[in-house]
């Protein structure tokens, strides 16, 4: 996997500390699944957490805690997620595992809703913290020109898009902050599928997009 625009350290550290909103957790876990270099950086931030855990003052555990746990072990089979993954690794998933878990399967399980101009979306989760959605944009087509009232994090899962001089392909992450105006265009070849997290509604700048925004709710 050749990631040109890797996920940033602040998101990785946020994931390691546990301080990210749920919507961002999903995009970080998914991006890390596609980028071993990011995985290594996350492991570094995890190691920092380990160092702090080591330094925390030990607290006495409840009486019988060990027995409690030992009883639960008897009823606990080892988890086999690695082995389950090996069994299914023959297939080329488009959606990495954390996203498959959220969607309930791979791309064919996504319940797309058309939002016009060939663009489809599937809102995975929406809360005051942010909205996480899959977007599918036909090859060669532009996303509506838009700026944001908040931040927008985009992870490419299939195909690619161009934003100005930059090209974002599978595994690449783009972070646009408040006020950025940009116009991503899906690259030729195949439809571009992205995971997008927004923490405030996007403000589209044109009239037609303004209508589209009502349906997109982004």
């Amino acid at each position: 996997m050749n990631v040109q625009h890797p996920i940033t350290d602040d998101l990785l550290m946020g994931y390691a500390t546990g301080g990210l909103p749920a919507a961002q957790d999903l995009i970080v876990a998914t991006a890390v699944s596609l980028d071993d270099e990011a995985r290594a950086r996350l492991a570094g931030f995890d190691a920092l957490g380990g160092a702090l855990l080591e330094d925390a003052e030990p607290m006495p555990v409840a009486d019988g805690a060990l027995n409690n746990v030992l009883e639960r072990l008897a009823a606990s089979a080892p988890e086999d997620s690695v082995h389950a993954d090996i069994k299914t690794a023959r297939r080329d998933w488009v959606l990495p595992r954390p996203l498959r878990d959220a969607v309930g399967g791979d791309l064919d399980a996504v319940r797309w809703k058309s939002v016009g101009m060939g663009v489809k979306q599937c809102v995975i989760d929406s809360s005051p913290d942010g909205t996480v959605r899959l977007l599918s944009i036909p090859a060669g087509q532009a996303m509506p020109d838009h700026g944001h009232g908040g931040s927008e994090i985009t992870l490419v899962l299939q195909g690619a898009y161009l934003d100005g001089d930059l090209r974002f392909a599978r595994g690449d992450v783009e972070v646009a902050s408040e006020g950025d105006e940009h116009m991503p265009v899906a690259d030729l070849g195949e439809d571009c599928i992205c995971l997008v997290v927004t923490d405030a509604p996007l403000r589209f700048t044109g009239l037609v997009p303004r209508i589209a925004q009502k349906f997109l709710r982004i």
Partner: peptide, 20 residues
């Protein structure tokens, strides 16, 4: 206990793994 077989000592110390 349930995930111990997935622990890789070349990728994390026990403390780091427990932290996560």
């Amino acid at each position: 206990w349930r995930k111990a077989h997935m622990y890789d000592p070349a990728r994390a110390t026990v403390t780091t793994w427990v932290f996560t």
